[in-house]
Simulated scan of single mutants.
Amino acid sequence: MVTTVTASPGVGSRTTVAGPGLPAGRVNVADRVLQKTAERAAADIIGVDAKNVRVEIVSARDTAVVRVTTPFPVPRLDDTAAVGAATPVLEAARTAQTALRSRLTHLFGRDVSRVDLTISGASVPQRKRVL
Rank of each mutant, 00 (worst) to 15 (best):
T3A: 10
A41P: 02
P23Y: 02
A7I: 01
L77H: 10
G21H: 01
K51H: 12
I57C: 07
P9S: 02
L90N: 06
R67V: 13
R26M: 03
V29C: 01
T3E: 11
Q35Y: 00
G12V: 11
V48R: 11
P73R: 15
V65I: 14
V74M: 15
T16M: 06
S59I: 03
D79Y: 00
V5N: 06
P9T: 00
A18Q: 05
G47E: 04
T69G: 13
V66Q: 12
T6M: 08
N28W: 11
A18D: 00
A38Q: 11
E39S: 07
I45Q: 03
D78P: 01
P20V: 04
T16E: 15
R14Y: 04
V48C: 09
A43C: 01
L34D: 13
L22Q: 03
D78Q: 05
G21Y: 03
A81W: 04
R14L: 07
V33W: 06
G19N: 02
P20A: 13
K51W: 07
T87S: 01
V53K: 06
A64F: 03
P75N: 08
T87R: 15
I45S: 02
S8P: 03
S59A: 14
K36H: 13
A85G: 05
V55T: 09
V65F: 07
S13C: 06
Q35V: 14
S8T: 10
V66T: 07
R67E: 09
G25F: 06
G10T: 03
T70E: 03
P9G: 04
F72K: 00
D62S: 09
E39M: 15
K36M: 14
Q35C: 07
A43V: 05
A82K: 09
V55D: 05
T3S: 04
A41N: 09
R67G: 05
G47W: 08
D62E: 08
N28Y: 09
A24R: 13
T69P: 01
I45T: 12
A82Q: 15
P23V: 12
V55G: 07
N52I: 04
V83Q: 12
D31N: 11
V58A: 14
V68Y: 05
T16Q: 10
L77M: 11
R26G: 04
V17C: 07
T16L: 08
A81M: 05
A82P: 01
G10L: 14
R40M: 10
V17P: 03
L77D: 13
T6D: 07
V74A: 15
V65P: 00
E39I: 08
V66M: 14
I45M: 10
V83H: 01
V2G: 00
T37P: 04
K36Q: 15
R76F: 00
D44H: 12
T16S: 05
V33N: 06
V33I: 13
V5E: 12
G19T: 00
T3G: 04
V17F: 07
R14F: 01
R61W: 05
E56P: 02
P9W: 11
G12W: 09
P20D: 12
G84Y: 07
V89H: 02
V48A: 06
E91I: 15
A38P: 03
A81T: 09
A86H: 10
A60S: 09
A50D: 14
